[in-house]
């Protein structure tokens, strides 16, 4: 298993290089360092010297991918791409275009992101699995049919409506909780309740339906028939035999997104003005801050790959049949 993880981690390196190349290309193909400097310096102070100075301060005063001015391997290393990328691999994200320490920002903003994401995930899982088991238990009856239709209806509503509707109903009409905002410490809880509720509700439709299909898939298998032929109680058949097997795809499905929880939720954070990584990303996009975008892309890719490795590990834990090699 160790050898397997080492191999998968090594496989991540070419992927991350590819990711970097792609973002780099997308950004600089239209946005040369000169343009960036002009954008940031504003109209008034644009002089060639000022641009050069801005570029030099931020390490943009080199060729993009290939440096003809020097020789040997430096042709590749003395470039913006190389210098900006190598640091990423050491998780040194550098400074944003307005001079803030990105690593510090990320570390700070991770907390509110997780404060929304983790409760949403746990509560959501509990609710969705219960509902799915309920539907699977009543399979073929009207409870099941209408439940499935309700799920489809719920998943047909855009997340934006859930947010706007939730803010309007719970925040504005009923005045149960603040509409948006965030505070440090224990006070954060009252700001987090609404986003978590909305996060859970918006996921119920699709997840319940998916989990139900997992349950039904297992319910048709021979070993369930064996369990019934043993004369076991229906509750034992459901919880011990059915759930144990249906949990395999559920757990692995959750594990794969687990690392990505760190990235935060774009919509929730921005609607509720929570200073997490999701809103950080949106702000960066709107301000066209390449340093932050690149850092977030890199972070996202690393987390995605970690997720893939975690899934494989999770399989060996929940499914005795799987061994890694």
């Amino acid at each position: 298993m160790f050898a397997y993880i080492v191999r998968r981690a090594a496989y991540a390196i070419p992927i991350l290089i590819g990711v970097n190349l792609l973002t780099f290309y997308l950004f600089f193909v239209v946005n040369s360092p000169d343009d960036m400097a002009r954008l940031h310096l504003g109209v008034k102070r644009v002089t060639p010297e000022a641009i050069e100075k801005w570029k030099a301060e931020r390490g943009y005063n080199k060729p993009l991918l290939y440096n003809e001015a020097v020789s040997g391997s430096e042709r590749f290393t003395k470039t913006i791409f190389f210098e900006k990328s190598v640091k990423l691999f050491a998780f040194d994200f550098g400074y944003s275009d307005d001079g803030r320490d990105i690593s510090h920002d990320i570390a700070q903003r991770m907390v509110p992101s997780l404060a929304i994401a983790i409760p949403s995930l746990l509560v959501g899982l509990l609710i969705n699995i219960s509902f799915a088991m309920l539907l699977a238990f009543f399979r073929g009856t009207y409870v099941d049919v209408s439940g499935v239709i309700l799920c489809v209806a719920l998943m047909s509503v855009s997340a934006m409506f859930y947010i706007i509707g939730g803010q309007f109903l719970l925040g504005k009409l009923l005045r149960l909780m603040p509409i948006s905002g965030y505070d440090g410490g224990v006070d954060a809880i009252k700001f987090l309740v609404l986003p978590v509720i909305i996060g859970v509700v918006s996921g119920i439709g699709s997840s319940t339906r998916l989990y139900r299909s997992f349950f039904l898939e297992e319910a048709g298998k021979d070993f369930i028939r064996t369990a019934r032929a043993k004369g076991l109680k229906e509750s034992r058949v459901l919880f011990r035999h059915l759930l144990a097997n249906a949990m395999i795809p559920i757990v692995t499905g959750v594990v794969v997104i687990l690392p990505l929880l760190f990235m935060g939720s774009l919509l929730l954070e921005s609607f509720f003005a929570v200073p997490g990584l999701g809103s950080y990303t949106i702000d960066a996009i709107n301000r066209q801050d390449f340093a932050i975008v690149r850092a977030m892309v890199f972070l996202g890719s690393v987390l995605y790959i970690i997720g893939l490795i975690l899934v494989d590990v999770a399989y060996t834990v929940v499914d005795p049949r799987v061994r890694l090699s």
Binding site: F223, T226, A227, N245, I248
Partner: peptide
Amino acid sequence: AMIFQEPMTSLNPVL
């Protein structure tokens, strides 16, 4: 009691 044709699928794989 009953035993089935396919012993491969008739036992619960995770117990």
